[in-house]
Amino acid sequence: MEHMLTRLQWLVGEEKIKTLQGKKVLLFGCGGVGSFALEALVRSGVGHIIIVDGDKVTVSNINRQLIALPSTVGQRKVEVAKERALAINPNLHIEAYDMVYTGESHPTFIADINPDFVIDAIDMVSAKLSIIETCYNRNIPCISSMGTGNKMWPDQLKITDINKTHTCPLAKVMRKELRRRGIKKQTVLFSTEQPMTPNRDDDSRSPGSCGFVPSVAGLHLAGHVIRTFLEVQ
């Protein structure tokens, strides 16, 4: 009988589908990158997902965030994301935390959840470092997204170790700070593209962004997690 994961099962087999249904993924960020990572995790049959984001949907999110629609502007991102995920898979076990994560404010959060994999799709450097350091110390697999703003070429996105990154300003900061913490290896997604300089009239420091780089980055992150679970080389 045909079911939601029939086409994936053709690729990986019934036992691998059961493997995915038994996995727990903690996703930080439901924005341009994170919303697409969530979409792929849900549509791949991951059984338990925890999402964390402390923001609301704004009009400027509509160009790149899967959860952003004129009808969802003003709503909390995690609630919109949770509703969409359950609309896709009503059997999904999903937890939503409407909060801005920091290691100082939530020191035991990751440990208490004890996920099988962590995806970092947030922007704040201090929080990213805390997530990575906690996962490193607890031997929890983690993949972290570097900068996807001010970019226009999704084909220049790559998954590699942080020490092999270049060009990306965020990756440069992360390399330095992770070395200071004695963390020698960390899987990341980064772009080899030279960042563009946004042309804007206000004093905002937010990067420019398109609808096809963050989205592809999110799909790459989810793909890495799924392949790891399924031991696909």
Rank of each mutant, 00 (worst) to 15 (best):
Q65G: 00
K56P: 05
T197E: 14
V12N: 09
N61A: 15
Q9S: 09
H224M: 08
P90A: 08
E14M: 08
I140N: 06
M196P: 04
G211L: 10
V125H: 02
I113D: 04
G22D: 10
I94V: 15
T228V: 02
P141R: 13
W153L: 15
H166K: 13
M196I: 14
Q65A: 01
Q65T: 01
G208T: 08
L8D: 12
S35T: 09
E133H: 14
D161T: 10
Q156C: 02
V216R: 00
N139E: 14
V225Q: 04
S35A: 10
K184F: 04
V125M: 13
S44A: 13
A121T: 06
V232P: 06
T58G: 11
L5K: 12
K16L: 10
G29E: 00
V78F: 05
D203K: 13
I183H: 11
Q233D: 15
K158E: 14
I88A: 00
D161M: 02
L66S: 03
F28R: 12
L170T: 00
I67H: 07
L5I: 04
R175N: 14
G29Y: 01
I119A: 00
H106M: 11
P141G: 04
K176M: 08
K172Y: 03
L157F: 04
M152A: 06
L5Q: 08
S44V: 11
